[in-house]
């Protein structure tokens, strides 16, 4: 029975993807991409990966969606079109992509039969980290270096986005609200955030033992902050302002501090003393959630537009 649902889901995904590619109008292509992101979340549920489903819908569907919608609004009519492709060119590219997909399919089908997996190793190590959710254990204990670097990647992207501001406005306030604000949006911005924050904190807290975690919670919190800014209830912060910078850098700095403490109290960098493993990880997760929320919101808000008040 579930097979039927899977086939329908895969068919839906592929048709939506083809529709996104072939759709001449930019805006509807992006809206189709939004739907594609949400369907993808279902696919991840079918692949028994709830953590990833949450991340995909929150960041892949929601975050990227609003990013692309704002981009489309800014670029409509003004964006210059690059080299258009001749018909035979498109055909050649299509054939090439088909060949790559076929090769990929062949590789996927020819995987070794007793699938090699690190699940048992992850399960053994779980007790040392004191966590219940294996994915969070991998993210924050076994491969903590990846998560640390990935957090720096997000910050670097933000610094890169900020560097695109005009010299005069650098460090100033990004333009989030555009034009007058419709009343229902203001109403929603007053009602929804409390619920959003509660859900975000809950997702971060439950992340240690059940699906949830830093990035998903951070995205929800970022969404709420964006909603408030879009509705004009709160003006976006100054990018060079101390509070924002501390919020952004706070997460990774705490992470690094605890990591360096690992030299003294545990047996090496990014190692946690056995007794304190869970509280330390939760502290890191809390700080990271705040930083992720601030970083994602600022990434969507974009570079500064108005000059800073020195």
């Amino acid at each position: 029975m579930m097979l039927l649902f899977d086939i329908a889901l895969v068919a839906g995904l592929l048709t939506l993807a083809v529709h996104v590619v072939r759709e001449p109008d930019e805006r509807s292509a992006i809206i189709a991409f939004l739907a594609f992101g949400l369907l993808l979340g279902l696919a991840w549920i079918r692949l028994a990966a709830p953590d990833v489903a949450l991340t995909e819908i929150a960041i892949g569907g929601g975050g990227t969606g609003i990013l692309l919608l704002r981009a489309e609004a800014a670029v409509r009519g003004r964006g210059k079109h690059e080299e258009s492709v001749t018909r035979p060119g498109k055909l050649a590219i299509a054939v090439g992509c088909a060949a790559i997909s076929a090769g990929l399919g062949l590789a996927v089908l020819s995987f070794a039969s007793p699938a090699p997996t690190l699940a048992p190793a992850a399960a053994e190590g779980l007790s040392a980290t004191g966590l219940g959710n294996p994915v969070t254990a991998v993210l924050l204990a076994y491969r903590a270096l990846d998560t640390l670097l990935e957090k720096v990647v997000v910050l670097l992207a933000l610094i890169g986005v900020w560097s695109l501001a005009p010299d005069a406005a650098w460090g100033g306030v990004p333009a989030v609200r555009s034009g007058e604000i419709p009343q229902p949006l203001a109403y929603l911005a007053r009602i929804l955030p409390p619920f959003g924050v509660v859900i975000g904190v809950y997702m971060f807290w439950v992340g240690a033992d059940a699906p949830g975690g830093t990035f998903q919670a951070g995205t929800v919190l970022a969404a709420m902050w964006l909603l408030v800014m879009l509705a004009g209830l709160r003006s976006p912060p100054e990018t060079a302002g101390l509070p924002l910078r501390l919020a952004l850098a706070g997460g990774p700095i705490l992470f690094l501090a605890i990591a360096f403490l690992g030299f003294a109290f545990a047996d090496g960098f990014l190692a946690y003393p056995k007794a304190l493993a869970k509280p330390l990880i939760l502290a890191i997760e809390a700080a990271l959630t705040l930083s992720v929320a601030a970083a994602l919101a600022m990434l969507v808000a974009g570079p500064a537009r108005r000059a800073p008040t020195r």
Binding site: L155, L156, L242, R245, A249, G268, F269
Partner: peptide, 28 residues
């Protein structure tokens, strides 16, 4: 297996990252 000089590698990797975060925190 971690060799005695191994922590130098961590320093080589993490030191510049700390500096980037310090610049972000302390300002331009």
């Amino acid at each position: 297996a971690t060799t005695p000089g191994g922590f130098l590698l961590v320093l080589a990797v993490i030191l510049p990252v700390c500096a980037v975060l310090a610049i972000l925190a302390c300002g331009p």
